[in-house]
Design a protein around this nucleic acid. Structure first.
Lengths: 246, 246
DNA sequence: CGTTTGATTGACACGAGTCAACACCAGTGG
DNA sequence: CCACTGGTGTTGACTCGTGTCAATCAAACG
């Protein structure tokens, strides 16, 4: 099975054999985390970075009233905290969502890559800009989409992202999280998540049993959620065709 | 008056005299935009980038039902679309919020800077990561903060950001936008924005007249909004001296 | 001046939160 | 083996924050 970091970054830049070897080597120090275990906390300033190899992690913040907001899901292939090298300290925390295997990357070498001008440099930039795109799309969901469409949109996104690293061959994937964690992701209450999920199930759009989500009709779910994967920027590069009107 | 792009980027990296000259030169091609005029639209792939010199701009998306979500405010000093060079096409649009002066930057040279390894490279990285931090904070606001605190938080953020480029010496700044645009920013309805603003005024926290917002008691507003500016990463960096003064 | 755009206000509807009870496991330990 | 437990999912009743619709006001503008 190919290293998911390589799989992902190849969408951002053409990687040479040497580039791939470099990534293999950088992600060779692996640690296992249990669900809810923090990888790094707000305010910290460690000398290493993380990348997800297996399982899911998330960025989150906790408010004074105890409310928690998850601001990103990190799936295999995702880099967690390029921030640390350039920004003084973490402005949020990162925790494992499920049992997961996380690579520990040396900070110095990553910093070096960030200014190297090579393919890996481009790939890191691409990865960061895609993260930004995802954040923007989530913002749209929370601001302007009704709950059911927002959740449907999240499921579409997860399917596409997991497919891109070979973790969802058919239209289903592992969803080893509680409804409360889904609630913290989309900014709703656990109770309402439950109701929306039932709604989606009754409409024959999804199945969710045994922590496996199955999308029964991806086309219909996409239409329902108004999902357009362009913001994930996974399409092949170099297509010079002019943009068609949205 | 110093170029706001220089002012801003100095928070991200120490800039040499040559670096500053370079920025001056890169931002010398200036165009004026009127309110609501698009700088760039979703799907486009132009050969230049933008930076705000005066006035405000915003990132936004429009949904099928006509709803609009503003995903970022771009104030003087902010770079608008580093995306274009690495991602194939824009996944969102950018428009002027108020009458503004925008610099047009040549794409080639900016791409070159992005992999140069120098101070400007670091500054661009920093700027991008800060944008991400702001997006995350907005997500927290939309997901977990009640309307009044969310808006208060936005005002705190704008004050700090504008101060950092010398556009808010006291506790007030220009807010040349309609309540509808505020609504599209925080994901609420214009009517509710109106009520929340009145609430904040009655509590003696702000004043908003003639498109100028005055924060009457910043400490109290910060406490109310639970505003912590750490996510803007404007504090002095540890290793070197602070950014040179004008 | 009328026209237009934006701010304000009130009445009402609805989505989503809260609270609380209950069901359904998967462990665990006796 | 089987109660007991704690975590999670499910439901219902009720509350409350926001949205919607529509009328009115105020200010800017040609």
């Amino acid at each position: 099975m190919m290293n998911p970091v390589i799989q992902k970054l190849q969408y951002g830049a053409e990687l040479s054999h040497a580039d791939r070897r470099r990534i293999e080597q950088l992600t060779s120090d692996v640690r296992s985390y249990g669900p809810r275990e923090d990888l790094i906390r707000e305010g910290e300033r460690p000398d290493h970075m993380h990348a997800v190899l297996e399982g899911y992690a998330c960025r989150y913040k906790v408010l004074a009233d105890g409310g928690r907001q998850i601001m990103a899901w990190l799936v295999p292939g995702d880099l967690c905290d390029l921030h640390v090298s350039l920004l003084g300290q973490m402005d949020h925390s990162i925790a494992a969502l499920s049992a997961s295997r996380i690579a520990i990357l040396p900070r110095r070498e990553m910093e070096e890559l960030a200014g190297s001008g090579g393919s890996l440099n481009r790939a890191l930039w691409w990865s960061t800009l895609v993260d930004e795109g995802v954040l923007r799309e989530w913002l749209v969901g929370m601001g302007r989409r009704p709950a059911d469409k927002q959740i449907a949109h999240l499921f579409c996104e997860l399917l596409v992202r997991l497919r891109s690293v070979g973790l969802a061959d058919d239209d289903s994937f592992d969803l080893p999280v509680t409804q409360e964690e889904l609630a913290d992701t989309v900014g709703m209450s656990p109770v309402h998540i439950n109701r929306v999920l039932q709604h989606l199930r009754q409409d024959g759009l999804i199945t969710l049993q045994g922590r496996v989500l199955t999308i029964l009709d991806f086309e219909r779910l996409k239409a329902f959620a108004e999902f357009d994967p362009n913001y994930l920027h996974l399409e092949k590069r170099g297509e010079g065709s002019e943009p068609a009107a949205a």
